[in-house]
Structure formats: C-alpha cells, structure tokens
Simulated scan of single mutants.
Amino acid sequence: MKDTADILCIGSVLWDVIGRTASHMRVGSDVPGRITRLPGGVAMNIAMTLRRFGMSPALLTAVGQDAEGNELIAEAERMGMICDHIYRSEDLPTDVYMAIEGANGLIAAIADAHSLEAAGAKILRALEDGALGTAKQPFDGPIALDGNLTVELLQDIAKSPLFRAADLRVAPASPGKAERLLALIDHPSATFYVNIEEAGLLCQTRFDSSAAGAAGLIARGAHRVLVTDGGNAASEGTAGDIITQTPPSVMVTRVTGAGDTFMAGHIASEAQGMDRSAALHRALQAAATYVSGETPL
C-alpha cells in the first residue's frame, strides 16, 4: 500500500448487516437465509473496489470510538485503506446499515448514518489543515463523494475552495437521498453516478432509458453523468455527447453495493488511462461480476 492517497472517499463508512434468502419475499415474509456483517457504506464500498483495482484510497468519514468502530477501522486498514484522517467521535456511535434481500431483489433497507450527519464538516478537517490540502493549495486529485452527507454540508462543499481543484465523483446513497445532490448539480467538475430512478428524482420526472436520464440531467445543469438501469443499457455523457452500452447478462445473487462497484470500476479505469467507451465497459463488467457473487476483477 502507498503511504499517500491517490483518491479520497468521503461519506459513509459503517457496518453492513445484510440478510439474504433464495426465496421470493413480500411484506411479512419469514424465511430461512443467511445474515452477514461486513464493512460497508457508500464510501467504504467504493474504496474496497478501488483497492482491488490497485488504487490507494483515504477515507474521510466519522467512526465512533466504540468497539464496533475500532473493529471497523482495523478491517479497513487491513484492506489497505488510509484511515489517518477519519474523525473519531467520543460520543457518537459507529453507523450501521441493515438490508433484506430476496430472490426478487432488495426488499427493504434502513441506513443509520446519524453519526456521519452529526459530525458534519469535522470529517473534512484534513482538507484544510494541510494534511491533504489547504484553501490555498487544495487537494487536486479525484474525490468520491456520497449523498449520506447533509444538504447543508453538500451546499458548503459546492462553493468551498477546498474542492475547487478536485475531480469530484458524486453518488447518492439511495433514491431516498438523491435530491440532496441538487446542491452540486451544476458544479463544473462533478461527475454524477446515479441509477435511472435517482435520475428521475433529480429531474422530477420519470425516464424510460438511461440515455434519456443522462440527457435530462445534463439539461438540468450537470457537467457529466453516468446513469445505470439494472440489467438494461447504461449511459455516460456530457452535453451533446452520450454513449450507451448494455451490461453482461448474469445471475443476480446480491444487489447491495453494485452501484458503488460500478462507480469505483469506472473511476479506476479512467485513472489508468482508459477512454470513455473502455472505462464504461469495464465498470459494467465489474458490477455484473459483483452481483453474480464473484470478486469484480
């Protein structure tokens, strides 16, 4: 692992508690399955995939000084992530995400990211105290930013000099938090990674294809976007220039974290010099491999 970061991952780092079953589920279902606890959160999921692609991510987040937090930090460091700049709160617990997945997809999920929200701008201290940058010499590499941050903090980031030199890569934490990203919609260096539902929420409409979603977001003011639609075609585009590709067809065994894997695969591919088409193709391959249950490389 390198001692210095080549990308920052800002947002949720927590424990994922996921219940999975091979059965179809509905409200009130009580079925056998497996329950796992793994490091998760949007920023963590992105960082884990970036590590597999050979990048060195630093995490900027809030983690409690409780037993769960100590275990989470130790696991992140074991995987090769830089954790020196994580805000460790004495009075806030480590966040957690809980989801139920059936054969018919994600049934329900609850994200308890209250500690990250309460920490606010404290998680960004390393960007201004010289550890990773200052207002006069801001961090000038890629930054993956997730929508678990509060609207107020995202609004501050949109106009902050600490981010003026960065290559911002932005993703919503979930459709329920997608509209938070409107604070960054017209940021000149932001690339948005959303699914078709999230694109519709940001544009207050519904789209019937990823290409239409990409065009809608660009018309809304976005500089650059990537829009996915499950197993259907995904699109990447800027004003007047949208490319579309269809992902590989695979057997879906998991869905939580697929979008984060897609985003990380795309960032890593571009960091390694791939052109737009090749980067999109590789990201779709990584996500398809992930949902099939394999390691996305």
Rank of each mutant, 00 (worst) to 15 (best):
D229H: 13
L201K: 13
P175L: 06
L217Q: 08
T261Y: 00
V255L: 12
A239S: 14
A233V: 04
A178S: 04
F207P: 07
G176W: 02
E236G: 06
A171Q: 07
H223M: 05
V225K: 02
E179T: 02
L201M: 12
G176H: 13
T261E: 09
A178K: 04
F207Y: 12
L184G: 01
R254V: 00
S277H: 14
S174F: 05
A258K: 01
I196L: 13
G237H: 06
D241V: 08
S235P: 06
R254Q: 09
S249P: 09
I218W: 09
C203S: 14
G259I: 12
I267D: 09
I185E: 01
A173M: 05
F207H: 14
T253V: 03
M263I: 06
P248I: 10
P172T: 03
S249C: 14
G231F: 13
G221W: 00
G213Y: 06
D241Y: 12
G265H: 13
T205Y: 12
A173C: 09
V255W: 07
T253D: 07
L184K: 04
H266C: 15
T256K: 09
V227K: 00
G200T: 08
R254I: 05
A211V: 14
P172C: 03
L226F: 08
R180T: 00
L168M: 05
T261A: 09
A173Q: 01
A278I: 12
R169M: 15
D167K: 14
A212F: 06
G259Y: 02
G240Y: 04
L217D: 03
F262D: 11
P175W: 00
L182N: 01
A234W: 05
R224M: 07
G237K: 03
D241K: 14
G176Y: 11
N232V: 01
R206I: 13
G230E: 07
T244R: 14
L168K: 04
I243E: 13
T256F: 04
R169F: 15
L226W: 04
I196M: 09
T244K: 08
A278T: 15
Y193S: 10
L168I: 04
E198M: 13
R206V: 13
Q272G: 13
T228V: 05
P188F: 00
A178E: 03
P247M: 01
C203G: 05
V225M: 01
C203E: 08
L184Y: 01
G213S: 10
A173I: 00
A215C: 11
A264L: 14
G257K: 08
V250I: 03
V225I: 02
